[in-house]
Amino acid sequence: MSALAAISNLAVAYRNAALPALSDVSLEIEAGEILAVIGESGSGKSTFARALIGLLPQRTAISGRIDWPGLDGAPRAGRDIGCVFQDPGSSLNPVLRIGEQVGEGARRHLGLGRRAADAEAVRLIGRVRLPEPERIARAFPHQLSGGQRQRVAIAAAIAARPRLLVADEVTSALDVVVQAAIVDLLVELVRADGMTLVFVTHDLALASGIADRIAVMAAGRLVELGPAAELVAAPKTAATAALVAAHIDLATPPLVGDAP
C-alpha cells in the first residue's frame, strides 16, 4: 500500500496551555485504509484530527511535518479532506436548507451549477440512506433527529469526493442503535469509493469493529499503532491494556449478584 499522508514528529501546543497537546507523533496513513485513533479525554486524538484537516486555531504552535505523497500537492479542506464532527447540530447551518448545505461542496469544488448541485445533493442524501431525499433536501436541520443530522453531515462531507474522510467522535452523541447504523454507513461509503478514513473515537470496541489499524494516543503521544485485532489481542502498552480491560460488553461478568 502507498501512503496518503506521512506525519513526522508532529507537535502541537495551544496558546496559554501548560502542556503540549501533541508531542512527537509520527505515522503514515495508508491510502484506502480505515485508521482508528483512540484515546481518553485529553489524549490528543482530536488535536491530531484537527492538525490533519488544518483546522487548528491560529497562533497554535505547530512543529514537525505532514506530507501528502498521495495527493498532487497540499490538501484543500473540503475538497481533498472531508470532515464530520461529534455534533452535527453545530456544524450545519440552522437557517440553510439541507439540500443547499449538502450540495455546496459539489458546487464549490466540482464546479456544478445550481440545478446540477441540487440534483447531486438529493442523490447524496439518498446515498446516506435518508428516506425521501427530495423532502429532506428541502428541510432545515432542526426538523431532523440527531442521527439524521449526522447522516446529512456525512453527505456534505463526501460531496466533493474527498480522498480522506476524518470522522471525529461522530457517534458519541448518538444512542447505540443509531451509532451502529452510522458506523456501518461510514464503512460502506469509504469502501465503495476507495476513500481513506481516519476514525477518531474513545470507544475501543467500536474501533476494533471497523478499523484496519488502530493508533492509541495517551497524554499527547502516539503510544501504540498496529493492526486492529493484534492490538486488542496482545496490547504492548499499559494504555492499550487499560482500554481493553475497561471495555464492557454482554460477555463482561456482571458487577452485581442475584437480586436482593
Binding site: 451509532q179 470496541a205 489481542a233
Partner: peptide, 12 residues
C-alpha cells in the same frame, strides 16, 4: 436491536 448494537471488542 439493542443487543445487536452493543459494540464487541474484536480480537479480544
Amino acid at each position: 436491536r439493542l443487543i445487536d448494537a452493543v459494540p464487541r471488542l474484536k480480537g479480544k
